[in-house]
Amino acid sequence: MSSAWITTRAWLLMLPLLIVMVAVVGWPMVDTVRLSFTDTRLVGTGGEFVGFANYTKLLTSRAFLGALENTALFAVFSVAAEMTLGVLAALLLDQQFRGRAFVRALMILPWALPTVVNAMLWRLIYNPEYGALNSLLTQLGILSEYRSWLGEPGAALWAIVAADCWKNFPLVALIALAALQAVPRDIKAAAIVDDAGPFARFRFVLWPYLAGPLTIALVLRTIEAFKVFDIIWVMTRGGPVNSTRTLSILVYQEAFSFQRAGSGASLALIVTLIVTVFAAFYIAMMRRSGSRA
């Protein structure tokens, strides 16, 4: 077989997939760009070309700035908490103890739950009338009366951060645990003989092996957090008073609730741009750790 034929055949075999990809991903993306420069509405007549009007309007709107702030707060705090909890959990699960395999398997559970199920679960926990959190806090005497965790603008975002953290820290823990298991036994033994304390052991023995995988986990989780939609949609739909409205929620509202397909498209592209910056960072990280190995 000539190499030319091998190449041709490879392309032929990939062709059906390529056609589907162009149809369901490529074309919509191009069309989104086109839409973003029009005032198209979801229902009704086709839109007129309006140039950058959608963008300028959006970037200066309070809705956008509010959503950007919410997204940033959500991303920074949920990712920070997930990283911290994940590493702590991994350090614990790396110890020798009875039932370790069971606990390791158990820890995956929150992450394995579908986001919608997790969101429903936490809505029950936060329920203002019979929620477990209210019951727990009042019984402990921390709270004097039941609160509506998802109904108060000052609390809702943090309640969602906690729910998201519970779901996603196991992923970080899993990655960190895998990294910890790659630490050579000899180095751990050397540190024991060298009289290194727990902090020195973490810093000089474990950290060099954790840093690379954790960076990747950090970037991955940040990208995910910036795109957050489903957990918020199920728990609060962006409310109360837009206090949990993130960029993705805003895109949805703009395009489908307010039926402004044109400006929804431009907003979607802005979110895509932000995520692309993180993704580029991620790829750079992967390349760096790849060349090091």
Partner: peptide
């Protein structure tokens, strides 16, 4: 404890601290 035995050990895989 190993640290109090006044021994020093050299390992097959060298066991150097990678970032020091």
């Amino acid at each position: 404890h190993p640290k109090n035995r006044d021994i020093a050990m050299v390992f097959q895989s060298y066991a150097l601290y990678p970032n020091l």
